[in-house]
């Protein structure tokens, strides 16, 4: 997968490395702002109240 990405990025190695960094940060942002907030309610330590349920 990563080999495939590396091959398909344009430019010399240094430019590819910068693009990889940008891609990585984009994935991290997607995780932090979309995926993790969505997954969070299912985490056990999120339940702090007592209820009749």
């Amino acid at each position: 997968m990563y080999v495939w990405i590396w091959r398909h990025l344009p430019g010399p190695s240094a430019v590819k490395a910068v693009q990889c960094l940008v891609l990585f940060l984009a994935v991290v942002a997607l995780l932090f702002f979309v995926v993790f907030p969505w997954a969070e309610p299912w985490m056990p330590f999120n339940s702090v109240s007592v209820d009749a349920g």
Binding site: P44, F45, N46, S47, V48, S49, V50
Partner: peptide, 13 residues
């Protein structure tokens, strides 16, 4: 005051 217990768990309060 209520919170979860044990830490990192939802088993108890």
């Amino acid at each position: 005051l209520t919170t979860c217990h044990p830490q990192f768990s939802a088993a108890e309060r």
